[in-house]
Write a protein that binds this DNA or RNA. Sequence first.
DNA 1: ACACGTTGTGTACGACGTTCACATCGGCCG
DNA 2: CGGCCGATGTGAACGTCGTACACAACGTGT
Lengths: 210, 210
Amino acid sequence: MARSTYRHGDLHRALIDAGLQLARESGPDAVVLRETTRKAQVAASAAYRHFADRDALVHAVSMAAQAHLAEAIEQAQAAELAKLPDDADDVARSRALLRSVGAGYLGFAWAEPGWFRTAFWVHEDLRDAAAPMAAGPAGKTPFQMLGHALDAMVEAGVLPADQRRGAEVLAWSTVHGMATLTIDGPLRVIDAATRLVLAERLLSMVERGL
Amino acid sequence: MARSTYRHGDLHRALIDAGLQLARESGPDAVVLRETTRKAQVAASAAYRHFADRDALVHAVSMAAQAHLAEAIEQAQAAELAKLPDDADDVARSRALLRSVGAGYLGFAWAEPGWFRTAFWVHEDLRDAAAPMAAGPAGKTPFQMLGHALDAMVEAGVLPADQRRGAEVLAWSTVHGMATLTIDGPLRVIDAATRLVLAERLLSMVERGL
DNA sequence: ACACGTTGTGTACGACGTTCACATCGGCCG
DNA sequence: CGGCCGATGTGAACGTCGTACACAACGTGT
């Protein structure tokens, strides 16, 4: 770990970790190249051996932040399913699945706003614009978890099959909007308690309106 | 207009206009102080006679962008109401009112993504965090228009009165989420045509789910 | 007419992203 | 086993940015 001189070992990873630390405080703008290399005990220009430019570095940090989001959703999902009674039917189960994805998403945005912003940071050029989000420990991306929950709702007969297509977009938009408005937007003045109540109503609206 | 030497006339307004022009291309990050003053044919430090710092300038530009948003919604609302048959009842009228706010919001985000981003830009300190958005030509802010539409729905009996409180947050979140996801987020790859279809479904979901 | 507050100028400083010549390391080939 | 070469880190340099400060030009009120 302690480097006497020169060779670092795994500077690539070290830079991402340092960037993650900086991003956590406020967001992607905080991952300043020079500060990141300083944190990694390395000259600023050393970063260019591992990343094309600052954008590439932030992009890598963004991917790592996305993985953190995926993990948060996984945990929320596990917690929600554990709360379900053993004799719960597929209807209740599929609904809980969908709600937990939304709740996990919002919970992460509120607990780690800097990482949340970083996860959805975009660079000008459209490198991997359509790329799936980074996966969590269980290997599933948030998008896949959402899709799975919606599939379960169709199977349980809660969601009409002809409404399945594109349902991800509707559900995602709703939750993402509340997340951004309450973190950065005009709704950031809402206190945590009423925020939670509104989130419940939001999820109910999706359930009812899909 | 043409300034031989010194005095500008209305540099404050000129800087906001130049900033608005820069923001239009990509967003708030593009309103660089030095570039803005260059556009206004003025030394960089001259900006400090009218704005405390760059943040204050971008904030003023953000306000102007919000006014543009308000205007776009006003126009969408007028267009939607004009399309309504003369014998339309209050139910149809109030629904059209709400849909037009959402459609105007999304239309503005897609037509002017740079201004849209700028309108929702935030600075670190929380200057006027709770301030209402800048109003449009008719003097009403987007938030007020949304509230008015929801009130009309309650009067028409479409929306239960006990669901009125906080309904702005739910409706706003939904539409705002789709806007940000489709201009900056992973959904930006969706083409304009399917985007429109999804927007219609989104608005229906809100109508049904509120 | 002249003093003074307002507004724009010019120069300077430190921090940033990026480039490039150079230094140092480790593994491979002889 | 030794030397060479690609990979990796260093240091100085350039141009741009935001900001501060002393100075200059302006116009208004006395």
